[in-house]
Amino acid sequence: MLTIKNLHATVEDREILRGIDLRIPAGEVHAIMGPNGSGKSTLASVLAGREGYEVTGGEVDFLGHDLLELDPEERAREGLFLAFQYPVELPGVNNMYFLKAAVNAIRKHRGEPEMDTMDFMELVNDRAARVKMDQSFLKRPVNDGFSGGEKKRNEVLQMSVLEPRFAVLDETDSGLDIDALKVVADGVNALRSADRGFLVITHYQRLLNYIEPDYVHVLVNGRIVRSGGKELALELEEQGYALYESAA
């Protein structure tokens, strides 16, 4: 589904990703763990197409598309979703209106008719219940005045409504208490299916108790230095990254 080959990227002329290789087939959940500054969030930003990240080498294939050639909105319409580490506040943009614009942009791309308001409301209310989000949040401006946990839940809500083919979760667990973490994990688990892939980026093993990954990769200094099964996460939790950092 997503194949990354020898990906190099720089930010402000500093090389952050230094040759990433990663293959995530449909139906699998891969976790990337690593210390601060290892390039985790840069990888997420490059995949989503954020400005200011320059790809200097390598390629990314997403469902047969050269992902790096697509605009951010085209990537989203093809089914890529990024749950932001720091969701942006959009005062003045109503949450419901925003979700509807996103849903319809994606439907239009697929050649499907726009969703009518009744069906849309039903869908959103159902998904909001899934992430235990109060209906009043839907009427508020996107993330405006939301707490950290509410913002992350809103990311998961958007993901549940948009039903992407592939989702990148960029430290969605950071700063969440255990209850909020469970809600986020439940939202992700409800979407797990044979034709959907996930890349879960996290700093802490804790999240992986609730979202069980098929594979865990260790990212240090812009390279994947080790890959293994879910037990690797526990090992990292106990031993830390020091071993890898010195090796890298």
């Binding site: 989503a48 197409g49 954020r50 400005e51 605009d71 951010p72 909105e73 990537r75 989203a76 319409r77 990024l82 932001f84 969701p87 942006v88 959009l90 005062p91 003045g92 943009v93 925003f98 614009a101 996103a102 942009a105 994606i106 791309h109 401006p141 958007q158 948009l162």
Partner: peptide
């Protein structure tokens, strides 16, 4: 226009022109 806000909207599939329009409207809505 706030670049981060623009990217956030585009990352949800909303085209650049519409995203800009949404943000301008958001600015004036008050």
């Amino acid at each position: 226009l706030d670049k981060d806000a623009l990217f956030y909207l585009r990352a949800r599939g909303i085209g650049e022109a519409e995203a800009r329009a949404m943000l301008v409207y958001a600015f004036a809505h008050e």
